[in-house]
Amino acid sequence: MSIARANRLTPYFFMAPAVVIMAIALLYPLGYMVWGSFKDWDPSQSIGEAEFVGLKNYVTLWNDPNFWESASVTLRFAFFVVSFEMVLGVGLALLLDRNIRGMSVLRTMFILPMMIAPVVVGLMWRYMYHPTVGTFNRTLDSLGIPGVDWLGQHALTSVIIADIWQWTPFIFILALAALQSLPRSALEAARIDGATAWQQIWYIKLPLMMPVLIVTGLLRLIDAFKVLEVILVMTEGGPGLSTEILALRISRTATEFRELGVAAALSNYLLLMLLAFTLGMFGFTRWQEARAAKIRTADEEDA
């Protein structure tokens, strides 16, 4: 074997163990799930014993209004949660990106919610939302304002608030890191060029932070689609189906309804949805870059 050829193969050789582990740890369960989704599968059976039913599980779900309700709850939850968290997190980062005494303590305090176990967060907020003894309603009561039916009528809003409380810090620290790695001198140049604080944010800081913000937003979006524990503890998906996001429905389909095949099909729908979002996002950035390049070449031809 020639040395050049050996050199060319070296990277593959080093990558091989990682590829094998990936294949086992990632692709095997995934394949298992896809395979299971084509079966009428009861928890008492092994996957081999279950009857193959083709796309029946998918069709059943497609025609199930509860599935659509759940998908809509998931989308609304993810949309509001990610939008608010992005705005709040980035806003806080812009606000706290300065060297004032005590700022580091403040920053550390801001990221505390993220470190609490989701179940604890769920319990905490459930007590705070309690209609009679909860913190919120007692406070409202003492101010003479009638209490709010947090986890009843406004259940979705309430879980969204809890999630924002827990995950805004995530956006905050990443945005802050992005902000602090911006080229200082470009900002100084902008100050000399006459940019107000707002214009600096709008024309310099945000565009330069954008790559980090896109990835951060994507991570949060994926997470928001899969959130389970907090909602499970707070509302168990209720009242009715008002907070039953897909992840929760999957877990109930598998455990309560004992339909593993349908649960697997549900998971695949969720996966496809996420995939579509991610690809859409990448496609969008690609398209924008391509458009910018096209404008550039057109301009260069003019010049």
Partner: peptide, 18 residues
């Protein structure tokens, strides 16, 4: 700086990368 009516060339250029 913006109220001082001046222009500056920085030692490290300080261009806007984007």
């Amino acid at each position: 700086p913006k109220d001082r009516d001046l222009a500056m060339v920085f030692q490290d250029y300080a261009l806007y990368p984007h």
